[in-house]
């Protein structure tokens, strides 16, 4: 596995975050070795810079904030500020993040927000701050404000996958499924091979199917199923993909068995939508997902090599889903 110090912080689980933050102080002291203590003219001949170094600093900073080690986080932030200057986009965002994390109550958070807005008034092109502002608005519960902030941002920078995905998430919490689906489709247009986003869109479609009935529902469900299929096509052992595929095929089988209407054999040329899948294929997919889920749960629980990267909570959820299934059969 890759060095956790260098991986994107969003990927790391709480356990690794704690691990990282415990390493932080040793790392910082290790950086001040005799090499960096060389006097000025000679220091020109020695290079202590590398991209990894600063990536590590940033990750340690984030990990420390997550685990509440504010002092070490501040030390990391100080070195980053010293190196890149106060005006650097990324550093500015990190400083804001630190202030947000150390804000003790609502009013302090509002103060941070006000600072962001002031900064943006003088220079509206600092996208990192605009994103932070949207995040703060969201965490303060002002969802609709956050949506407006993000839509404005996306009008000016429509190729920002991160922002699209966040916007989709926000729409989802508001229950506006159509907009959420649009946003996630936009993410896919930017990153066509991200299997997690394919599965995410499948999840949203599955949720949206609960609102509709009849032929529409079938259409959305089969679209959702195909999204999960695509996700699995891109990544064989993606747990969420298998989980979703199992859920959606189970639901689809129910719908297919109850629907009286004879199935359309060909796709609808006017709308250009795909025909619903055959019952046979859905059944097979259901079996496939079940067996794969069982395999993943079994192997992950026995701690086999190469199968230990799954998050514990997801494994438990998968097992619970499988158990639900067996109970039904026993009955």
């Amino acid at each position: 596995m890759a060095n956790p110090l260098l991986e994107a912080p969003s990927k790391s689980s709480p356990e690794t975050a704690i691990d990282l933050s415990q390493q932080a102080s040793t790392f910082i002291t290790s950086q001040s070795s005799w090499l960096s203590a060389i006097p000025y003219p000679l220091s020109l001949f020695i290079n202590t810079e590398s991209q990894e170094k600063w990536q590590t600093y940033e990750n340690l900073f984030l990990a420390c904030l997550r685990t509440g080690d504010d002092n070490t986080a501040y030390a990391c932030l100080e070195s980053l500020t010293d190196r890149f200057g106060k005006g650097n986009d990324r550093v500015v965002a990190l400083q804001g993040l630190y202030k947000e994390a150390t804000a003790k109550n609502e009013s302090e958070l509002a103060e941070v927000l006000r600072e962001y807005e002031e900064m943006l008034k003088s220079d509206p092109t600092i996208f990192s701050i605009r994103k932070r502002r949207a995040a703060v608005l969201r965490s303060m519960g002002k969802t609709s404000d956050a949506v407006t902030a993000l839509t404005n941002l996306l009008d000016q920078s429509p190729t920002d996958a991160e922002a699209w995905s966040e916007l989709g998430d926000l729409y989802l919490t508001q229950g506006s499924y159509d907009q959420a689906i649009f946003s996630f489709e936009e993410v896919l247009l930017i990153m066509p091979y991200s299997w997690n986003m394919q599965a995410r869109l499948g999840e949203v479609l599955y949720l949206a199917s609960g609102r509709t009935e009849g032929g529409d529902q079938m259409k959305i469900l089969s679209e959702s199923m195909r999204r999960f299929c695509r996700s699995l096509e891109l990544c064989d052992d993606y747990l969420r993909g298998h989980y979703g595929l199992k859920l959606v095929t189970t639901r689809l089988l129910e719908v297919l068995s109850t629907s009286k209407k004879p199935q359309q054999s060909s796709s609808d040329p006017v709308r250009g939508d795909l025909a619903p899948p055959s019952v046979d294929a859905v059944k097979k997919l259901n079996e496939l997902a079940t067996s794969k889920l069982a395999e993943i749960v079994r192997r992950s629980n026995s701690g086999e090599k190469g199968w230990d990267g799954y998050s514990a909570a997801e494994i438990i959820a998968a097992r619970e889903l499988l158990d639900r299934d067996t109970q039904k059969i026993e009955r």
């Binding site: 199923m225 195909r226 999204r227 299929c229 695509r230 294929a281 496939l288 067996s291």
Partner: peptide
């Protein structure tokens, strides 16, 4: 559409695995 026939592709791929 990339999702056209994806379920068949997937099943074909996992045929041996089940």
């Amino acid at each position: 559409y990339i999702l056209d026939g994806v379920e068949d592709r997937l099943l074909e791929r996992f045929q041996g695995a089940i």
